[in-house]
């Protein structure tokens, strides 16, 4: 029984196992990363020079290919010069976990390089604002339009064919256009988030609206509800929990457009930080920044999920243990 219980199709696991697996899903990738970083015989294709010896182009702390190092070592042995010394290492783009963890902390404590530069938390805040405004503006139009399209066939037939077409156009393709229209600062970035989310949002929400049991509308009609009141008193409250779930998924979607959006016009926000750090090969900082995006995204989603349970006590899927 014990072994089958772990793999019973469509059966929920007991809470302690669920928790264990949830922790495991994070621990496992970190563990692999640790193994590759700290166990010298796993991968490690480079050699970090600690003493260049007589090789003229070697320098201390320089990374060279294992093969190059071996060739130079043999040459020196043959010529009888001072031998170069070095330890196995991973390429520069794979820093070990402790370096990234360190960078995660020092990122916030290091003042900006230039006087008018931004602290890391200021860059992050810029990014969050871009997401917030892009998603808010998109939702303000897409949610009502989606609900109307899902309720009234006329609205759906008028808008959805064009939206179906438009959603295949990649949002970054409008970058140059957005700069021409909206300038180089926040405007075009918000526009890209908007374009990236809006069209999907209308279609997803209209679909959700259509899934509302039509019998509920019929029941309301037989209770004397006028056709105008149906929308406010039956359709909207009926789809609200699903609409909320859609919005959570779509917010994640908006985040995925962030980096492209922030490269448009003047680079800003967390993207500016990432490109800047990558330019100086501070890859631990790059990883730290990417992790921050993930943490902010997952964090907001967890908070929103908790909030959803509070807001919709009648919603079964959300409250199911």
């Amino acid at each position: 029984m014990e072994t089958t219980a772990w793999f019973a199709a469509r059966q929920e696991l007991p809470p302690n196992r669920r928790k264990l697996l949830a922790i495991g899903s994070f621990v496992l990738p970190i563990l692999i990363w640790c193994l590759v970083s700290y166990v010298p015989f796993l991968w490690h294709p480079m050699v970090r020079i600690s003493d260049p010896g007589a090789v003229d182009y070697f320098q201390a702390d320089m990374l060279v290919d294992k093969a190059v190092f071996k060739a130079e070592l043999e040459t020196m042995q043959a010529q009888g010069g001072a031998l170069p010394v070095g330890g196995l290492s991973n390429p520069i783009y794979l820093p070990p976990p402790h370096k990234v963890a360190e960078a995660f902390y020092t990122g916030f404590t290091t003042p900006p390089a230039s006087k008018d530069g931004l602290w890391l938390h200021q860059s992050l805040w810029q990014s969050i604002q871009v997401i917030f405004w892009g998603f808010l503006l998109s939702s303000l139009v897409a949610v009502p339009l989606g609900v109307l399209a899902g309720t009234y066939s006329a609205v759906s037939r008028l808008f959805e064919p064009f939206i179906e077409f438009f959603r295949y156009l990649p949002a970054p393709a409008f970058g140059a256009l957005a700069v021409a229209v909206l300038g180089i600062y926040e405007g075009p970035k918000i526009a890209i988030i908007f374009i990236g989310t809006f069209f999907q949002q209308v279609l997803i929400i209209s679909n959700t609206t259509r899934k509302l049991d039509y019998a509920l509308l019929e029941a309301a009609l037989t209770l004397g509800t006028s056709r105008l009141k149906l929308l406010r008193h039956v359709v909207i409250p009926g789809i609200l929990p699903d609409l909320y779930r859609d919005q959570r998924i779509l917010l994640g979607w908006a985040w995925t457009y962030l980096i492209v959006a922030e490269l448009i016009g003047t680079s800003s926000g967390i993207t500016w930080f990432i490109t800047q750090q990558a330019r100086y090969e501070h890859f631990e900082n790059v990883y730290a920044a990417i992790l921050m995006i993930g943490i902010i995204g997952l964090g907001t989603d967890l908070v929103l999920a908790k909030l959803g349970k509070r807001l919709f006590p009648w919603d079964k899927p959300a409250n199911k243990q």
Partner: peptide
């Protein structure tokens, strides 16, 4: 008045609010 086989109660309303629905409409 109509009673359907599939109940068709409004899931977002409490029992009392369900009964009040027609009156309020």
């Amino acid at each position: 008045g109509m009673v359907f086989q599939g109940y068709t109660l409004f899931p977002w309303l409490t029992v009392r609010k369900n009964v009040m629905f027609g009156l309020e409409m």
